[in-house]
Simulated scan of single mutants.
Amino acid sequence: MKLVFYGLWEDERSKLEELHKKYGFDYEATAEELSLLNVSLSEGCAGVSVLGKGAVGDDLLSALHGYGVKFLATRSIGYNHIDLAAAKKYGFKLCNSQYPPDSVAEFTLMLILMSLRKYKQALWLQQVNDYALEHLKGGVLSQKTVGVVGTGHIGGRVIELLSGFGCRLLCHSADYDPKVAQIAEYTDLDTLYQSSDILTFHVPLLPSTKHMVNAEALKKMKEGVVLINTARGELFETEALIGGVENRKIGALAMDVFEGEDGIYHMDRTDDIIRNRDMAYLRQFPNVILTQHMAFYTQLSMDSMMENSVEGLLDFNRKGTNRFEIRF
């Protein structure tokens, strides 16, 4: 069986070669994202693996189908970059990847603590030798109520980590987890918004979750609420965030993702003009932390995603399904 890997990062190569030796498949690989310019590399391959940044639309799926590709894997948990209707039309089997939740969960906890203790402001002030404490009085996590939206793989782990701080924990999710219910209280979304000092989001990007944090949702939240997003940027409506920070409804905002981040995050744009005014405007606020979609980025996660992707494609060929198959 032959596979092709698009968007391959250097720190994925050693794991890919290890899996190649273990399972004996043939493969091609390129650092370039899948595009119409390089889709011909998939000719004669049964399966294709993409990293999860570039859009995989009808045109690309049609071309892959024409070259005989049957199976598609994304080396990411999210798969909103793939046109599912087109994938179904051309008869693809699709799988995503998983990784242990600790990388994102620990990063989420770090953002919560950085927001509460005003680390960004402290870092800025040190750059000009200002070591006064006047603007740096922080909050204590154990005295807060934290609302977790989404109690799946990552959200559940976030709750486990937070439970050690002694804070009150509320949660809301499409699925009920009895283990989570032992340490957090499930409630409806409106109650969660109204009661939480800190809100952290761990849900997939779906039509029902896009812009779930908007102007109407902010009205339901506490004054000075702390918002954390390490899931997908499009869960938050950017215009509403700007308004919330300006009028101090939002006390602190920390996001590892951003609406419209494609073409910016995971690229060196040092000498470029970044044409995302909203990103530039939000970044300048002292109580806003933006990181470059890096919460997942540990060797543990990278190895897991590559392993899931390879084994998923091989299982499609051998068994017709796999444990990470996306059914649509």
Rank of each mutant, 00 (worst) to 15 (best):
V310C: 05
M305E: 06
R323P: 03
N308Y: 08
E325L: 05
M306L: 14
S309F: 01
F296Q: 05
S304N: 11
T298D: 10
T298R: 10
F324S: 03
S301R: 06
L314A: 09
I326D: 05
V310F: 05
M302I: 15
D303H: 13
S304P: 00
E325Q: 14
A295L: 06
N308H: 14
D315Y: 07
N308M: 08
M302V: 15
M305F: 13
E311P: 06
Q299R: 09
Y297L: 13
S309H: 10
N322S: 08
Q299M: 09
V310L: 07
D315E: 13
G320M: 08
Y297F: 14
N308A: 12
F328N: 11
M302R: 13
N308L: 02
R318M: 11
T298H: 11
L313D: 03
T321P: 03
S309Q: 08
T321I: 03
G320D: 12
F316N: 01
N317P: 00
N317F: 14
M306R: 04
M305H: 08
F316T: 00
V310S: 05
T321V: 03
T321E: 12
N308K: 08
V310K: 05
V310P: 01
G320F: 09
K319A: 09
K319R: 13
M306G: 06
S309V: 01
F296P: 01
I326F: 07
V310W: 01
L313V: 10
S304Y: 04
F324E: 02
S301C: 15
A295S: 15
V310M: 05
N322A: 10
G312K: 07
F296M: 07
Y297D: 14
E325D: 07
R327L: 11
A295Q: 05
Q299A: 00
R327F: 09
G312F: 04
E311H: 10
F296N: 06
T298M: 05
F328C: 09
N317G: 03
Q299D: 13
L314K: 06
I326L: 12
L314I: 15
G320E: 11
F324M: 12
T298W: 04
